[in-house]
Design a protein around this nucleic acid. Sequence first.
DNA 1: GTGGGTTTGTGGCACC
DNA 2: GGTGCCACAAACCCAC
Lengths: 80, 80, 80, 80
Amino acid sequence: MAEVGGIAADRLRSFVERVERLEEEKAALSADVKDVYAEAKGSGFDVKTIRQIVRLRKMDQTDRDEQEALLDLYKRVLDL
Amino acid sequence: MAEVGGIAADRLRSFVERVERLEEEKAALSADVKDVYAEAKGSGFDVKTIRQIVRLRKMDQTDRDEQEALLDLYKRVLDL
Amino acid sequence: MAEVGGIAADRLRSFVERVERLEEEKAALSADVKDVYAEAKGSGFDVKTIRQIVRLRKMDQTDRDEQEALLDLYKRVLDL
Amino acid sequence: MAEVGGIAADRLRSFVERVERLEEEKAALSADVKDVYAEAKGSGFDVKTIRQIVRLRKMDQTDRDEQEALLDLYKRVLDL
DNA sequence: GTGGGTTTGTGGCACC
DNA sequence: GGTGCCACAAACCCAC
């Protein structure tokens, strides 16, 4: 990166800005999520509970996958 | 939420699914960010340092200076 | 913290060193864990599988607690 | 691990429990660290900065200098 | 202002 | 030996 004002600098700046752009979009989506929760709250629902529901629904998938992997390992260990 | 099988339940389900959809999009963007860093690394840049840069640019100039001043102070106190 | 060479400096140094001491102990325990896994491996067990077991046994407790909390919340929502 | 109900199973259980015990001790030490930081905060110190100090002291002087030099370079490239 | 939760960053580990 | 992955730990944010 000898050319501070040249090509490498442009590339570096490009990478930084691409990341920043993506992070902004993520932040916008996070704001959207927040809005949905606010709307749910305004409709009389308990936000905390909904968060738990979302977490559980996501976790269930993860657990299922892990369980399956573990089961496969056990099967092989036991020559089943 | 007296009507478990009725209107309220539908609304609740709607909120949950909207959140899940948004979270999926966020996950996709996180993957994109990861890709950008991988590309930067492949171009010879140091990923860890770029992360620091992004973090610094997100900070207010004032905060950045304050953090730095505080760190310098503690360093002097400890002869670091 | 006007007295760089005085009381405040001593306190700061004390805090830093207490943390460092605790972190060292943690590192020692991490090394012990590593040793146990090495011994298990030497006994013919699959380390990765044992890690999964430990994770599952820990996660089960967490899930159980969350499930219970969620159930309580549902009960209240439904006036049961 | 042919003898699921026998010797091998006992050994496996032993390994799992030893790891769990060690992880518990680690968790206790983590709690102690947290307490120290809380006490430091109560004495008027900035916790975040102390964490930085601890991190810096853990680093090799050479690595510390390299990180700093790299960050400075990137900063200059980006006119930060 | 404090605590809990979520998310991000970093380090270790396995695989290639 | 390098790279991708995963789990732990730290930082940030919100709610109370």
